[in-house]
Amino acid sequence: MRKFHLLVINEWVKMVKKRSFVVPYLILLLFPQLLGYIIHSVSPGSFASAAGFTREMLLPTGMGQVMTILSIIGTAGIVAKEHSRGTIKFLLIRARSRTAILASKYVTVLLYVLSLTAVAAAGILLSGMIWFQTGGGDTGIADILLALLYGCIYSFVYVTLAFMLGVLTHSTGVAIGLSMFLLTIDKMVISRSFYKYFLFPNLDLSVYGSGQQPPMPGMTLGFSIAVLAVYMTVFLLAGFLVFRRRDVA
């Protein structure tokens, strides 16, 4: 495990060397500026402060969703492309276990999400400071960090899903397509009590924050965290078990 970080460096280098690498970062920096401008010109009073704007934008209902989409696009191919390009053969005939290789890829995916989140936060904060008052309002740094955390968790669940799909299907298209499809329908609510055990209603943890009603009766923050943990574990287990055992043709 001592040399695990070298595997992560490998994966990171492969991503950075892509010419399109900076595009999602640019989007996350520039898009909030445009958004801030539009909101400011339509209704200047909608956000009391830059902090309030930042908090609201980072949530899965705001830029958090864009961040997730970009994360999925950026990482869905991390396993599937090795198969389609044939580079998986050179990758797997090294003195490293398949578990370590896949784990290094997953860690890289998480790091990528974190880096996107950091850039998005910076972009949003900048936009907030340009278009809204820097002081005032009742949103503090703790609120912003919490929103950042919720946005990250939302993205983590989706990239983990896309990661598993990439391992199982060897297809970047299926991994991106299916997870994007789920992303677009995840706000849908089916009013049956069994639905609270599904992934979707539990994805946005920010609903528990401000004394709002939970999406469905009987749901709590702890419940949602537990459900998310179970789903993530299943996704990862499925991915790792299949990757370890599968014949590479």
């Binding site: 280098v13 390009r85 580079t87 050179f90 090294r94």
Partner: peptide, 20 residues
């Protein structure tokens, strides 16, 4: 099959990092 968007040297470095 190599990572075609990377140079030959970068490709070899990948495999250097994967061996002891």
């Amino acid at each position: 099959e190599f990572y075609s968007h990377m140079s030959g040297l970068d490709n070899l470095k990948q495999y250097v990092r994967m061996s002891d």
